[in-house]
């Protein structure tokens, strides 16, 4: 099923200078009891964003009106822990289209790419520099091109290239979906089963 396409865009950033942000923080388990993919953004970072009475925690970054945008910049090992794809749905539903970090947990990265969210890896020092920059200057614009695999920060004159698997790059740009790809292979898969025999 077609996803939203992601290629060239620019946005301000939200900095989150924490490391090892696990998916239990991104979306706590008690909010997983839904049977649809929508609406998880309301509970993104729930227990950091709201206190137990449901009041906004003033010093948490998402509650600071100075910071907004489609890009989340986070410390290393973002998305570790539980495999819940709800974490990606929450980040996406909230409005982010890119997460920049120096390091992502494997399952989170796969889940992100399967939902049109770009997990963008930059060197640790550059991520730290970017966090410092956008914290001090929230209006900083960051430009991203998936096609050119390029991140650009016009105000500081910096630009970087990032790695992305060419297959996944195509999927993002064209809003394609792995499941469609696999469904088209069903007869090949059946051949494989015959060749191997005795499954079950």
């Amino acid at each position: 099923m077609a996803k939203e396409k992601l290629n060239i865009f620019e946005s301000t950033c939200v900095p989150l200078p924490l490391e090892n942000v696990d998916t239990d923080q991104i979306i706590p388990a008690r909010f997983l009891s839904s049977t649809s993919r929508e609406g998880f953004g309301n509970n993104l970072f729930r227990d950091w964003r709201f206190d137990q009475e449901g009041r906004a925690v003033q010093d948490f970054i998402l509650n600071n009106r100075k910071y907004s945008g489609k890009i989340l910049v986070a410390g290393k090992n973002f998305g570790c822990g539980s495999s819940r794809e709800h974490a990606v749905w929450a980040v996406y539903d909230y409005g982010f289209r890119v997460v920049i970090s120096s390091f992502f947990a494997d399952i989170f990265r796969n889940n992100a790419l399967n939902n049109g969210l770009l997990p963008l890896i930059l060197p640790d020092d550059e991520v730290k520099g970017l966090i410092a920059l956008v914290t001090a200057a929230p209006e900083t614009i960051v430009k991203i091109s998936v096609q050119e695999r390029k991140v650009e920060i016009p105000s500081s004159g910096k630009s970087f290239t990032f790695e992305i698997n060419p297959y996944k790059q195509e999927c993002l740009i064209h809003g394609l979906d792995d499941i469609d790809y696999l469904i088209n292979m069903r007869s090949r898969i059946a051949d494989y089963e015959k060749k191997r025999g005795g499954l079950g």
Binding site: N111, N114, I179, I183, M185
Partner: peptide, 22 residues
């Protein structure tokens, strides 16, 4: 190994998933 829900859908639909070799 653990997978996300999109991958659960892939397996239900085709008994396969797309994975990069670790």
């Amino acid at each position: 190994f653990g997978i996300g829900t999109s991958e659960v859908e892939m397996v239900l639909a085709t008994q396969c998933i797309l994975q990069t070799r670790p």
